[in-house]
Structures are given as C-alpha cells and as structure tokens.
Amino acid sequence: MTRYADPYLAGAGIGVVLVAAYVLVGQGLGASGAFASVTAALTAGVVGTARASASPAVAPYLPNGAASPLTDWLVWELAGVALGAFLSAWRAGRLARTIERGPGTGAPARVMTAVLGGALMGVGAKFARGCTSGQALSGGALLSVGSWIFIVTAFAAAFAAAPLARRLWS
C-alpha cells in the first residue's frame, strides 16, 4: 500500500484544479449542490414534477419543470470525483470494502451516526449555499465574505462538538 501524498502538494494540486475551473468554466468546484440536484430529481420522481416544482425549495433544480441532474455541471464533477478517487485508491492499493470507525464503535453505531451527521450537513449546506468544496474552498479562494463566515463557523462548531463525539472515534 502506497503512502499518502504530502498534504501541501495535494493541496496545491487541488488549488491548481480550482483555478483551472475558474478559467475554463467561470465557476469553482462544489459538491453539496450536486446532492441537492439529485434529491430534487428523486423528489420529482416520487411525487411528480408538478408537485415538486410547486415547492420553492425544489423548483430551482427543475428548470422547465424537468429534472436535470444529467446536465448538471456539479453532478458530472462529483461523478469525476468518485472516478478519480477510485483510480487513485486502486493504484495505491487502498481499495477496501470496509467501514472506517473508531476502535470502540460497532458498525451499526457508526452507520447511524454517519447518517445523522450527513443529515446535519445536508441541512447546514442548504442554509450555507454550499459545503467545504463549494463555499470554504471555492468561495474562500475568491475571498467571498459568506464563504469565510462558513469557514469560521464550521471549524468552530466542529472543534466545539469534537469532545462530545470523542467516544465515537477513540
């Protein structure tokens, strides 16, 4: 199994990818937006596009009343993230069907807290109009005030909540 890459080198590389995104398509990288888009499509699939478009929260993701994750830039980007991650792990011998969890945590507990944590992040990302990729990284590099507000509050909350979750991870 290969060692992890130097974090500064990886970070600089990600920064270059981000600049390439600005130059080539005029926008930064993101992630939560893709999830919102796919969720909107699922919603439309379940309750029908008419009802879905009636919801002001979902309507923005249904241009012309049609679900469009397949033409959503962020969805394709995220698909690429999955592919790139797979290829990297494959080459490094890090592919593993497993559940990363603290030594004292059972798999069911880990999965439940992962879902709960994901749900909190989902709500948070909606309020914040983005996540660590879209706001902290991409918006932060453009010096957007809201993105920096997000960086500060997200890190502060994570550090503050860490002691409460210690048993999960140690």
Partner: peptide
Amino acid sequence: GGALFGGG
C-alpha cells in the same frame, strides 16, 4: 449553516 455543518 456552517455551525450545523461543522457539528455534522
């Protein structure tokens, strides 16, 4: 949103 996100 940031606070919720960080906790999650």
